[in-house]
Design a protein around this nucleic acid. Structure first.
Lengths: 231, 231
DNA sequence: ACCTGAACACCGTTCAAGT
DNA sequence: ACCTGAACACCGTTCAAGT
């Protein structure tokens, strides 16, 4: 028979938090907290473990490795993407809406786009749901089958790349996008005209438009380009 | 007067290499060697310094930090991109050729595309040369000025994103792209038909085409989409 | 089966000290 | 001005040992 544990020791053992046992869900939640607050670089095995009151080694019983954890976080993020019911008459606008929605969600989790670009063709449950929905939109648009299949990847790639560009400025309030572009504008203005006539002539147009306008332009090019494949 | 250095000590001091003094060029060359052989992740301050027979701290007299070094390497890579003389009659084909050339160069330096996505709008001397040339192509195409300006970014973004996707498979001979796609195909085939009718119906088309065919499809969508803006 | 601390082999960057 | 070693504060992953 062992002596009962005195209460001050009891409390010392669980002083941090209720310390429920580890599981995949709590790991993903902790990882998403770090992602949203500090960006993808903060989602390290050690930081996530620290947030859960344990050591990095403990996570390996629940996730294969850091890439596996990032893939789980990515699917959780994709779970936030709302998908529409197809209305074939307005397929162009629906594709744009879908792309805007996906960009909005990705932009809310800075750096997550990088996981997509490093792990092409995600196959988590939520990614499948979104793929199915986007295929539904494209198949109602009167496009050849092969165009539908490749357009799926092309649209995702465009949205993902834009999302990654945007999160490049995360956590740098001083050197934010507007200021950076102003600096580039100054720089262009003082280039030698003989070597860079086009850049100098286009100097104003090159700086025109905020991030959203540029994204919209790309969407317009995409859907117009796709429409040229209609049968 | 000090005694002359005995020859065995003299040799001991410079036993590794001729050990010419550090400078930016030799640092960039060493970094590119690592990049080409092992990918961007190998281009660390410590590995580059090791290749030059010194310590990481010594590099900071010549480059601001790791991001600065990566930016210098990026511009050196862009220096390999050949640019054409504009022939306005075949602007669509010239834009495609330019994109193919840029992808070819980026693919030869695995991971470099990531530097572009993290540092939008590169302004190194070679980047300027390429920008000037691409603007020349686009301005001869009869597109509105604002379309030319935004198309410049859009084309670069597409090529960069594809390059990054491709280098995701660098150094993994086993899980190479073809095998990965075959696995995805198997996975799609066993999905429940009620939940994923579009994916199942499109299963063959989704797997069709190699990386180059998909890139060409995207180029076609881009130039067709741009052409819809002609005045 | 799950959890842990310690260890291993890495990082980027700073700094005082040397030349 | 340039170079250096050591230090600091981080990494991912493995492993023997615990429960």
């Amino acid at each position: 028979m062992s002596a009962p544990v005195p209460p001050w020791q009891h409390r010392a053992e669980r002083r941090r938090e209720p310390k429920q046992p580890l599981n995949v869900d709590s790991i993903v939640v902790a990882a998403m907290d770090l992602l949203d607050g500090e960006g993808l670089d903060a989602v390290s095995m050690r930081r996530v473990a620290q947030k859960l009151g344990t050591g990095a080694a403990s996570l390996y019983a629940h996730v294969r490795n850091k890439d596996g954890l990032h893939a789980l976080v990515l699917d959780a993020v994709i779970g936030e993407v709302a998908v529409p019911e197809p209305e074939p008459d307005r397929w162009q606008e629906q594709i744009k809406d879908f792309a805007r929605e996906q960009l909005r969600v990705f932009a809310g989790h800075p750096g997550i786009a990088q996981v997509v670009l490093r792990n092409p063709a995600p196959t988590g449950p939520h990614a499948l749901r979104v793929t199915e929905a986007l295929l539904g939109l494209l198949r109602g648009a009167g496009l050849p089958e092969q165009v539908v299949a490749w357009a799926l990847d092309l649209i995702s790639l465009y949205v993902t790349a834009v999302a990654m560009e945007r999160s490049a400025f995360f956590g740098r309030p001083e050197a934010d996008m507007a200021e950076r572009m102003a600096q580039v504008g100054q720089y262009f203005a003082q280039l030698p005209e003989q070597s860079f006539p086009h850049i100098l002539a286009m100097r104003v147009a090159l700086m025109e438009g905020d991030a959203d306008e540029r994204f919209e332009f790309g969407l317009q090019v995409l859907v117009q380009g796709l429409a040229s494949f209609r049968e």
